[in-house]
Amino acid sequence: MGNTFGKLFQIHTYGESHGPALGVVIDGCPAGLTIDEAFIQSELDRRKPGQSKITTQRKEADEFEIVSGVFEGKTTGTPISIIIRNKDQKSKDYSHIADKFRPSHADYTFHTKYGVRDYRGGGRSSARETVARVAAGAIAKLLLKHYGVSCQAYVSQVGSLQLQKKYTELNLATAEDNIVRCPDSATASAMIELIDETRKNRDTIGGIVTGVIQGVPAGLGEPVFDKLHAELGKAMLSINAVKGFEYGSGFEGVKMKGSEHNDAFYTENDHVKTKTNYSGGIQGGISNGEDIYFNVAFKPVATIMQDQESINEAGETVVVSGKGRHDPCVVPRAVPIVEAMSALVIADYLLISRSNRLN
């Protein structure tokens, strides 16, 4: 039913936006990994609603509980179950659309597929589902730390306002210094102003999150259908509101000649490296040891605080009024989600790589 992600490091998420709880079951995490609960909570805090004036004002502490798979602070090798209880549902905010299809939402497609839908905040299709992914991604990050791998992300664009610096020119750690999560203070201030102005106009705006994965060893990924970049693309495109994914030179690469785009190899201290990295750390679907970098495009949030024409379940023309608590721009809270999905992919492929050959 599409609720499971991964092969060896596998997660299964459950729950709805306005149900009693959401959660995740993680299977395949090796035994003996030290679980830092404060770190997991800090990751959930980065995603949680109500954290600033440019995010939804729904108030959820997003406190989690590990109910299996961890004993005396370490993983046991058995399934890890995590639950996060909802506490600030306002389901009455959605009673006016119980039989109406909101423009650009999953209301109509869910109704068509299942014949029934949870209209309260979108139910299973709500971005609230990503809280489970971030919890699982935090554990994947702890596993990757053991292997010296890091997954970082930041906001590089809001609307037409684009950060004019490459990730190599930035201190990515400073992304958390402002509420929009852009590691350039001047650009961040302009982004915040643009989002706040959009919010005051009862509208929404999209943007881009850039992801950077460092410390990835060469050899992760498969050469045909399970290419590493294909799995990263699937992971990112599974996030709510994502409309596009590119890695390495991406679409800009079509403007270059092969002589410009090719990444020449050389050795440094017995390590194979490339002089440029237009490949984005992946060649032939397999990691080459260089940084993996990519962009994820997010559309403007579909719920706007304006009246819109649509239809209801009977096919009649109706007016849908925007109500409830929603993000004017999703990208600041999407940063930890992009990191989580990155970590889940790399953790899975690291475990797979250990079974691919005799050491």
Results as ranks from 00 to 15, higher is better:
K275D: 02
C151W: 09
V335W: 07
G23M: 03
A230T: 15
G123D: 03
H271P: 00
H146E: 15
K227W: 06
I11K: 05
K100D: 01
L344Q: 08
Q283Y: 09
D45A: 10
N295M: 07
I179W: 00
S238Y: 06
K234Q: 13
Y108I: 06
G115P: 13
L143S: 08
Y114P: 03
L144P: 02
I82M: 13
G285M: 13
P49Q: 07
V331N: 06
V301P: 00
M305N: 14
N312E: 03
G285F: 11
L170D: 07
D203Q: 04
Y14K: 09
D348Q: 10
M236W: 04
G73Y: 10
R85Q: 13
G32S: 05
Q214N: 14
R333V: 04
V338F: 06
G121K: 09
A21V: 05
G280S: 10
N201G: 14
A334S: 14
C151V: 08
V212G: 09
S355Y: 11
A38Y: 00
V242T: 15
K200V: 00
E316T: 13
D184Y: 05
V330E: 02
V131L: 00
V134S: 07
D93V: 03
P103K: 11
E129M: 05
G15D: 06
P20V: 07
S185F: 11
L194V: 04
Q162F: 01
A140Y: 09
M341V: 13
V149N: 11
F245R: 01
A140T: 13
S81W: 01
T274E: 00
G121W: 02
E252L: 12
D348F: 07
F294K: 06
L232E: 06
E252I: 03
T267I: 11
D107W: 05
F251H: 12
Y94M: 05
Y119S: 04
Y14P: 06
T276C: 01
A340Q: 03
G284T: 14
A230D: 11
G206K: 08
H18A: 12
D99M: 03
F9I: 11
T276E: 08
G219C: 08
A235I: 03
E309N: 12
I352F: 03
P20Y: 04
T112L: 15
S42E: 14
K87S: 15
I346D: 05
D327F: 07
K257I: 00
G280E: 12
K275N: 04
I26P: 02
D203T: 08
P336R: 08
K165W: 08
N240Q: 15
S238Q: 05
L170Y: 11
G289F: 12
I40E: 02
E193I: 00
E339M: 02
M305W: 01
S160H: 14
T112K: 15
T130V: 06
L142A: 14
P183S: 10
K323F: 09
F251C: 04
Y14R: 12
V116R: 14
P49A: 00
V338L: 02
G28S: 11
G322F: 04
Q51I: 13
V242L: 04
